[in-house]
Amino acid sequence: MMRFDPFREIEELTQRMDRAFGGPAAHAARLAPPVDVHESAGGLELTLDLPGVKPEDIQIEAENQTLSVQAERKYAREEGRTAHRVERAYGTLSRTFSVPAKYDLTKVEADFDHGTLTLRVPRSEAAQKRSVSVRSGGQLTAGKTVEAGAAPEQTDGHAPAQQA
């Protein structure tokens, strides 16, 4: 006696359709891989999961404050082999990120290890923190560290009063 499976006929029909029309590879889906984005004083770090992708199948483009990652995960279809279940995603994996101008897209670094792509985007030199020395009565005083693009503390043109 065979146990009744209401989905068996649907799965068999799906398999026949896959064989007739080229299988999952024929459905060139665009998928968005999961990503973690972290920011530190040094810059941005983006980590994407690209399991089953070969390093040579990854394209990274940086242009006009946009960082794009595209990879291809191919379905290996073999003659004489029947797929009973295909649940993993195949096709083009693609993500695009808008990167603020304070990061330097000309110096992006990429590492790919065990299906994980890590992109590092450093801060631009203009956006780095730096120390500015202040002259008072012709003598230099201790510098103050400021971040590029930070709003000044006062806008009336006068320096803050120093306490003795």
Rank of each mutant, 00 (worst) to 15 (best):
Arg19Ile: 06
Arg19Asp: 04
Ala20Glu: 08
Ala20Met: 09
Ala20Ser: 07
Gly23Glu: 06
Gly23Tyr: 04
Pro24Asp: 05
Pro24Cys: 13
Ala25Ser: 11
Ala26His: 00
Arg30Tyr: 05
Leu31Val: 10
Ala32Met: 02
Pro33Gly: 07
Pro34Gly: 04
Pro34Ile: 12
Pro34Ser: 07
Asp36Met: 14
His38Glu: 15
His38Met: 14
Glu39Ala: 12
Ser40Cys: 06
Ala41Asp: 10
Leu44Lys: 00
Leu48Gly: 13
Asp49Glu: 10
Asp49Phe: 06
Pro51Glu: 01
Pro51Gly: 05
Gly52Thr: 00
Gly52Ser: 12
Val53Trp: 07
Pro55Asp: 05
Pro55Gly: 02
Asp57Asn: 10
Asp57Trp: 03
Ile58Val: 13
Ile58Cys: 11
Ile60Met: 06
Ala62Met: 03
Ala62Lys: 04
Ala62His: 10
Ala62Leu: 08
Asn64Trp: 06
Val69Glu: 05
Val69Lys: 00
Val69Asp: 08
Val69Thr: 02
Gln70Val: 04
Gln70Thr: 07
Ala71His: 00
Arg73Cys: 06
Arg73Ala: 02
Ala76Ile: 09
Ala76Phe: 03
Arg77Ala: 15
Glu78Trp: 05
Glu78Met: 14
Glu79Trp: 02
Ala83Pro: 00
Ala83Asp: 12
His84Leu: 12
Val86Phe: 02
Arg88Pro: 06
Ala89His: 05
Tyr90Glu: 01
Tyr90Asp: 09
Tyr90Asn: 07
Gly91Lys: 07
Gly91Leu: 01
Thr92Asn: 08
Thr92His: 00
Leu93Asp: 06
Ser94Tyr: 13
Phe97Pro: 01
Ser98Trp: 13
Pro100Asn: 02
Pro100Asp: 08
Lys102Ile: 14
Tyr103Ala: 04
Tyr103His: 01
Leu105Ile: 03
Leu105Arg: 09
Thr106Tyr: 01
Lys107Ser: 05
Val108Tyr: 02
Val108Met: 08
Glu109Cys: 09
Glu109Phe: 07
Glu109Gly: 14
Glu109Val: 13
Glu109Thr: 15
Ala110Phe: 03
Asp111His: 13
Phe112Ile: 10
Phe112Ala: 02
Phe112Leu: 05
Asp113Cys: 09
His114Thr: 06
Leu119Arg: 11
Arg120Met: 06
Arg120Pro: 04
Arg120Thr: 14
Val121Gln: 04
Val121Arg: 04
Val121Trp: 03
Pro122Tyr: 12
Ser124Tyr: 02
Ser124Gln: 11
Ser124Met: 02
Glu125Tyr: 03
Ala126Cys: 12
Ala127Pro: 14
Lys129Gln: 01
Arg130Val: 08
Ser131Trp: 13
Val132Cys: 02
Val132Asn: 00
Val132Gly: 06
Ser133Ala: 14
Ser133Lys: 03
Val134Met: 04
Arg135Thr: 09
Arg135Pro: 10
Arg135Asp: 05
Gly138Met: 06
Gln139Pro: 10
Gln139Thr: 15
Leu140Lys: 14
Thr141Gln: 15
Ala142Arg: 12
Gly143Lys: 12
Thr145Asn: 01
Val146Ile: 09
Glu147Val: 08
Ala148Ser: 09
Gly149Tyr: 05
Ala150Ile: 07
Ala151Asp: 12
Glu153Ile: 11
Glu153Asp: 08
Thr155Gln: 13
Asp156Ser: 02
His158Tyr: 11
